[in-house]
Amino acid sequence: MQQKYLLRTFLFLSLLAFVFLLACNSSEDTEYTPVSPVSMDLTRVPYPKLSDYKFFEGTLKNLNPSYKVIPYELASGLFTDYALKKRFVWMPSGTKATYDGDGKILKFPVGTALIKTFYYDNVQPSETRQIIETRIMIKKSVNPVTLQDEWTFANYVWNDEQTEAYLDMNGSYSPISWKNENNVVKSSNYRIPSETECLMCHKSNERPIPIGPKPQNLNFSYTYTDGTKNQLAKWVEEGYLESYSDNIVSTVDWKDTSKPLETRVRSYIDANCAHCHSTNSHCDYRPMRFAFSETTNPVNLGICVAPQENIDNSLTYIITKGNSQRSVMHFRMSSVNEATRMPLLGRTIVHEEGVQLIQDWIDSLDPACN
């Protein structure tokens, strides 16, 4: 009797062990793999609402990125009436960008979304954050004949309740006042661009292109939720970039006073001027070429180069060495007149710190132009 009992017990325990092992193996076979919730139907985008993409999880205005929506920053960004910006990138599963040169836009896969949100903190009188707009560029296809990338714009304007942003490509103004880091109240009649205005800056050969995400602008460390890492290395780690050069000639943060003044100036000009002052871009007809890789040549910077049009007799050169007050660049950057200001779009007020940077640099140049 005891032997039968022991045998039954042994068989029962053996069966339990077998079931347990089977369950473990089954669990391993069906291990959960996270999937990005982002919705990107290229036959339907742009969607009518920002939330339709599912780029962000939780409360929309918190801009908490969904899985595989990766934040990024540029070493020096475009001035937009002191608006703060949050940038993100998303790519379809199994795809990645490729390196095409330090100063060239990464070759993104079809379906890529570049997301940039513009906002202000300490908005008056409530001292709260206000999001103005979110701009998205989506790579919808590659032209089978020209092999050129086909990007589309999608601008979303946030409602007053800050609960949703709606597709609006018509352009508008949004008056806003805020308190800056020095507790000074500033105001702007912020311009939300139309589709036509977007194309003026974001174009090459009259086709839409991104501007910022180039290796030269991404090659620095960013603090993510899981630690600090070089952005390009992070993109490789996330499967968003095939590889990149070990010797990238990079732009710098123009605000970083530890860097050489000329490098800061060239980085600022690259971010704020090069998108128009480049071959096949909006200001192609101008002699200056402001891309970071081209401004090692003083002629491309406009140093001792006579202007094509006479704005004022006192403005002798685009850059008059040692005399910012006689320099066209300084004059245009200090102007808010739509007929004379530079950049043409993207700002309605003067970037005081940017003007000071250019002024300090010009006034430091010698010897004087002949």
Rank of each mutant, 00 (worst) to 15 (best):
Y72A: 02
S76T: 15
S51C: 06
K68E: 10
L74F: 13
L78Y: 14
Y53W: 13
G58A: 08
G58C: 06
Y67M: 01
D52S: 07
I70F: 01
M40C: 15
F55C: 06
Y53T: 14
L74K: 12
P48G: 01
T43W: 06
Y72V: 03
V45A: 08
N64Q: 14
P46H: 01
G58R: 02
L74V: 15
F56P: 00
E57A: 04
D41A: 13
V38G: 03
K49W: 13
N64E: 14
K49Q: 08
V38T: 13
I70P: 00
Y67F: 15
K61E: 14
N64P: 02
S76E: 08
N64V: 04
V38R: 05
V45F: 05
F56K: 01
P46C: 01
E57H: 14
F55L: 14
G58D: 11
P71V: 01
P65T: 07
S39P: 00
V69Q: 00
V38M: 09
V38K: 10
G77W: 08
P48K: 01
L60R: 08
V45L: 05
L63R: 03
S51W: 07
S66M: 06
L50P: 07
S66D: 13
S39Q: 12
Y67D: 04
E73K: 15
S51A: 10
D52W: 02
L78I: 12
I70T: 13
S76C: 11
P65S: 05
L63D: 02
K68G: 01
F55N: 03
L78D: 08
L50S: 07
K68M: 06
T59D: 10
P71Q: 07
T43G: 12
P37Y: 10
P48E: 00
P48T: 01
V45Y: 05
P37E: 09
V69A: 00
A75P: 05
G77R: 05
L42W: 14
A75G: 11
L50T: 07
F55Y: 15
S76P: 09
L74W: 08
I70M: 10
M40Q: 08
I70G: 01
Y53V: 11
L74Y: 14
Y67C: 02
V45H: 02
D52F: 01
P48S: 00
T59V: 10
N62E: 13
P37Q: 11
S51K: 14
Y72W: 13
S66L: 07
F55S: 04
E57F: 09
L60N: 11
Y53R: 06
V38P: 03
S51L: 06
Y67T: 03
Y67G: 01
K54R: 15
D52E: 07
F56R: 04
F55W: 15
N62Y: 12
P65N: 08
K61P: 07
M40T: 05
Y47L: 03
E73R: 13
